[in-house]
Computed example of a mutant assay.
Amino acid sequence: MSILDATLAAGRREAEARMRDTVRLYTQGEDVFDRESGQTAPGPQSTLYQGPARIKGVAQSSGEDTQAGERELVLREYEVAVPWATTLPQGARLLPGARIEVLSSLDPRMAGLVLWVTGAKFADQATAWRISVEDRS
């Protein structure tokens, strides 16, 4: 093992030690309208990853106001780091629009938060897999 490989392995262990939140990364299918009840039900979900993560706000986040229908939203940017060796199910790709639900966190205000994936960063010399997300609440 080279010095670089040993350093990366140590860095990845340290990065994982800081992952104190638990998240579920999933895709959401199209909503389904039930003609009998007149209600729209959420489409099926497909879990891509569930496990430890570290969630942190992006320092230069603009907190941009935007309009969605008749409701005003503030978009806040975050970065979610999951273990570098995380793999997705066969044939799955992480695309914008996937969601990350915070299942548990030492910050009780985070539990239940749903974040929307806007992009992902890939690098062979990274200590974690970093996913760009936004809070659309």
Rank of each mutant, 00 (worst) to 15 (best):
S2E: 15
I3V: 15
I3A: 15
L4Y: 06
L4R: 10
L8M: 15
L8K: 10
G11Y: 01
G11R: 07
R13I: 12
R13G: 10
E14Q: 14
E16S: 08
E16T: 07
E16P: 00
A17T: 10
R18T: 14
M19K: 05
V23G: 00
L25P: 01
L25V: 11
Y26S: 12
Y26I: 07
E30G: 01
D31T: 01
V32D: 03
V32E: 06
R35H: 07
A41W: 00
P42L: 04
P42G: 07
P42M: 04
Q45I: 02
Q45M: 04
Y49R: 08
Y49L: 10
Q50K: 12
P52C: 09
P52I: 07
A53Q: 06
R54P: 01
G57T: 04
V58P: 06
S61T: 13
S61A: 13
S62F: 06
G63D: 13
G63Q: 13
Q67K: 10
G69M: 01
G69A: 03
R71I: 08
V74Y: 03
R76T: 14
V80T: 09
P83C: 06
P83I: 04
T86N: 14
T86W: 05
T87Y: 01
T87E: 14
P89Y: 07
P89Q: 12
Q90E: 15
G91T: 07
G91Q: 07
P96W: 01
I100E: 05
E101R: 04
E101Q: 08
S104L: 04
S105N: 11
S105M: 03
L106G: 14
D107Q: 11
R109N: 12
A111L: 03
G112D: 09
L115K: 02
L115A: 05
G119F: 01
G119P: 02
A120Y: 00
K121H: 13
A123H: 12
T127W: 00
T127P: 03
A128G: 11
I131A: 04
I131F: 04
E134K: 11
E134N: 13
R136L: 03
R136Q: 11
